[in-house]
Design a protein around this nucleic acid. Structure first.
Lengths: 229, 229
DNA sequence: GTCTATAGAGAGATAGAC
DNA sequence: GTCTATCTCTCTATAGAC
């Protein structure tokens, strides 16, 4: 019985512990996204998590440790958006799928995107290893495959590394600078599914057209001339 | 004589005053760029300006006032990058020139770009007026002109507002996320002229190709076949 | 494991000598 | 106009009651 009690207690503790840690990380992601590491306060995070401030330190020790836990989750999320691009894959659908996956991430995890952005703007003091390691490797490998596609005439010549960077820039801007796009488009406080869909299609069109993977549609007067003649 | 002395003193004072204010704003731009409004400290700004902390408050009153002065300068800089796009202008060279101007700004004023980025990530509490006012107007007007170009068959059909947003995203990312690009490209601590030139050309090619303003180069095997046949 | 109360460091801001 | 010394408030972190 003593063992049983201990077991049950341990299980419960573990579950509560995990739930609370996850709850704190989610709250921290939001606060760090808005104010950056130095601008965020543990009091704000505690309020967002609806827990006393001391619990934050009980679970994570220091603000620094909590921030690293948040970054770790985000890096895992970023890595999960990587695609296993292979030599035999179809260039057009591979690029389109990757752009769609990145846009899903911007739409569903905007706070994560902003924490990442904040960290990069600061000079990435806590992420240099990741940037120079896993991320660089992924880019090298995938750009290499795309370079082969180009060599084999399956895609028009472009700088493939730069292409990847620009895909990141265009997809992440919809999360990071959302307020700018809502202000200009006049779509209230947040971007809706319609805006994301249109943006996704615009990025896919731009990338595929410029890589010669889909035709650039004819100019309008040409079309109209065909219709009228 | 008394008038002369007063005049000279006033001139000197005015000059020193302006010089110091400008010196503090430049230092503040750097510190705010790195840490955002809440993360930046007046002590850091004073250190960067090589002035005692009290001088910051003597010239600007509060940290908030100083931040607004920095934002005002940046908004003026952004507005100066606007181009008077006119109906009769050539679409290809107009877009290329605008992209070049934006890239010059990223290269020469990366801190300004990052302060702007920080403010947007935070939800732009101090810039909503600008976003919903002057910026929105500029976009409406310029997108309208481009829509005319499309109607007149001078450009392939695209969503022109989204095109502007994506040009901003691609050009500003080279300043805001510089550390990511240097880490992946392995170009040391900073991007050089070579990287900026290549990036500029890549963005121009992508935009002009996707708008049907320059041809997409043939795929390599086609070229090679022509050469070998 | 939870939370109040508080210590100690660091922030913004200012008074007042120069 | 310049700068040191200092006030006050807020922040991180922890001790200790429950």
């Amino acid at each position: 019985m003593g063992t049983d009690n201990k077991k049950t207690a341990a299980d419960t503790t573990g579950r509560i512990r995990l739930e609370n840690k996850e709850r704190i990380i989610k709250a921290a992601e939001k606060i760090f996204a808005k104010n950056g590491f130095r601008g965020a306060t543990t009091a704000d995070i505690a309020a967002a998590a609806e827990l006393p401030k001391a619990n934050i330190h009980y679970y994570f020790g220091t603000k620094e440790d909590l921030y690293r836990a948040v970054l770790d989750e985000i890096v895992a999320l970023w890595v999960s958006s990587f695609r296993e691009i292979k030599h035999d894959d179809d260039p057009a659908s591979t690029l389109a799928d990757y752009i769609r996956a990145k846009m899903e991430l911007s739409k569903n995890r905007p706070h994560a995107s902003r924490v990442f952005a904040n960290e990069l703007i600061r000079g990435a003091p806590r992420m240099k290893d990741y940037l120079e390691g896993a991320l660089k490797e992924w880019v090298e490998e995938k750009a290499g495959i795309m370079d082969q596609w180009i060599e084999e005439g399956r895609m028009a010549p472009v700088n493939t590394r730069t292409l990847i960077f620009h895909i990141w820039a265009m997809t992440q801007t919809w999360a990071d600078f959302e307020v700018q796009w809502t202000a200009i488009l006049g779509t209230g406080d947040h971007l809706g599914d319609a805006e994301y869909e249109e943006a996704t299609n615009a990025i896919i069109s731009m990338v595929l057209r410029s890589c010669g993977l889909i035709p650039v549609p004819p100019r309008m007067t040409e079309t109209e001339m065909k219709l009228t003649v």
